[in-house]
Design a protein around this nucleic acid. Structure first.
Lengths: 339, 339
DNA sequence: TACACATTTGTGACCGTGCACATTCGAACA
DNA sequence: TGTTCGAATGTGCACGGTCACAAATGTGTA
């Protein structure tokens, strides 16, 4: 209410400079804590900045140095637990590193939508992209557009030019499958995720690999859509011909729907049918029965994604690519077969 | 590979102008589709833009017009279903309106954290903020800092200067409570959300109001933390003295934990205890038993938030503030009391 | 043909910051 | 006291758009 008249404009670097009796460049140096600045000068400038409540203008900064300090997130089904925790972790990690995050959601998977979402990110001149929509065709579009910035994804694509962060989905799926085989099951179904999803593919491969390695005959996996609704529907269908004693579901939600269907027809879990999920969402421990599942640490993966991306932006080492080993959480939805 | 030498710089408005044989201002006019531009000129410019793969630079734009076309989201527990769907909806709606979204997560609720998160948003000169972290103290900080931009929240705060979008939580909670009373229950507990949360407060008030209106004696609500784990723990505690026939939980996750605890001690749902949740997360229909709950359309609320905020930014009408009426979804977790 | 007037286009400055380069300052040393 | 050299600071311009204003061009009418 004293000297600070209601200027319409926010204070700029030059306003600070004037009041501190230095040049605007000196103020800039204080901002970026340049080494050769006298302590007294620095203190004086900082005091004026406080008084004026000065905030650097991000747009001007971005324009001037040609770099935005922003990373983009390309994400599908971001209201689900997995993607959502990943996004949250990415945001926290990015903010910690002084970066900003912009997210573009994919509402469908056709090329135009993907392209539009990418455009939305590129227009903001993001310096890198984390892809949480691990559908193969997203990568097709990414490669085809020859995006000018580095990108990483949470899962390994298995392609030549792999930008993936290999959380070892295959090992996780194998552990889950092995658990069922070890319990004595020989008729095991796999409820997979949607075709085209990298995670679904990897988990399916893990299932098939383990079944093959243990010489257990396999039936074709059922392709689902990740939802509990689909799990229920698939369960009802499968139970019309009851030729199995265990099901490995590609995620916890579908497992929940499955268990619902199994109980609906009056069967017991795990007495009649064992169920294994994947992800270990926080609710899984309270399903009925508590669900045996494979824990995936989304937060850790999110953090790694950012670290990897920033490394790539600044051309760092590759050690972050060592895969994360998943953990099988055995609860009460699995047991030996009845006969 | 012809004229476009590998310039290091991205093409600017002036590059386009040169090649199209017009002034840079004309190009700018094409970009902002100014009315008085000859069709032929416009076409020519647009063709050059395509050839050059020109993209307007957002930073330059923001700097020049002093407006960022960005809104901020301040969010807590953003990996949970509710906030996550809200955020996704906000992003979609904002993008549709030509706005960008930046999110800041709150990892804790102490003033410094809140202030830091707000700072993160303000530095990006957001034009408005959607608050999805409806803790009272967040608003304390918001008011105290006298934030220079408009903000809205999904829930009504009940304060004088209300920035809330009134999804009618109280009505929803009353409907849920009424449902239990109508079934004949007279000993009903309420498992509330954390103190300080607006939603928790509103649902609790709805519960108490309805109980009072129907002359049913009330016990003090139990304050939880929204998690299934807590629901389980609270259930175990409550069941040591079994003096109730129904519980109304403030969200579905806690209801899930509750049901887990109830079954663990060998009781039947709804035979011995009825349970009602709140939110209707997609999994609720597949809980065991399928959960009676109050549906909340997070996506719709998210869209409204953006609409309301943009209206406020541009000083529009207030009709969007009419509350959304929630819907009670009756499933199988509720029934008449045993005696 | 000349004039008024609307439509279309151009010119130059400016937004706030960082960079390259120039300058000044101050201490150490001959 | 003059010289040298690194540390500290200043100057001017560039970044890529938009804005206000000026100029050119086109159109209709006397």
């Amino acid at each position: 209410m004293s000297a600070d008249l209601p200027k319409s404009r926010a204070p700029s670097i030059r306003d600070v400079a004037r009041l501190a009796g230095v040049s605007h460049q000196t103020v800039s140096r204080v901002l970026n804590n340049h080494p050769s600045i006298r302590e007294t000068t620095k203190a004086r400038v900082q005091q004026v900045m406080d008084e004026l409540q000065y905030r650097p203008n991000r747009a001007a900064r971005a324009l001037s140095r040609g770099t935005s300090r922003t990373i983009g997130v390309l994400s599908a089904s971001s209201s689900q637990y997995g993607p959502a925790s990943g996004i949250a972790a990415i945001q926290d990690a990015a903010r910690e590193a002084g970066y900003y995050v912009n997210t573009a959601n994919l509402t469908s998977a056709d090329p135009e939508t993907i392209e539009a979402a990418l455009d939305h990110l590129m227009v903001q001149s993001v310096e890198g992209i984390v892809v949480i929509a691990p559908q193969m065709r997203v990568f097709d579009v990414l490669e085809q557009l020859s995006i000018a910035v580095p990108y990483v994804t949470m899962q390994s694509t298995g392609r030549q030019n792999d930008h993936g962060l290999s959380f070892d989905q295959i090992a996780g799926a194998r552990a889950a499958t092995r658990h069922l085989i070890d319990l004595g099951h020989r008729n095991i179904y796999h409820l997979a995720g949607p075709q085209d999803w990298i995670e679904a593919e990897a988990r399916m491969r893990g299932f098939l690999d383990e079944m093959g390695a243990m010489d257990v005959p396999t039936t074709a996996p059922i392709l689902g859509d990740w939802t509990a609704d689909f799990g229920y529907y698939a369960g009802r269908e499968l139970l019309r011909v009851r030729d199995f004693t265990a099901i490995f579901s590609s995620n916890d939600q579908m497992a929940l729907g499955l268990m619902h269907a199994i109980r609906d027809v009056g069967l017991d879990i795990p007495g009649d049918v064992s169920v294994v999920g994947f992800d270990d969402i926080p609710e899984a421990a309270h399903f009925w029965p508590p669900l045996t599942t494979v824990r995936q640490d989304f937060a850790e993966i999110g953090r790694r994604c950012v670290a990897l991306l920033l490394d790539e932006i600044t051309d760092g080492p590759d050690e972050l690519r060592t895969p994360i080993i998943p953990e099988l959480i055995v609860r009460s939805s699995t047991g030996p077969p009845a006969f």
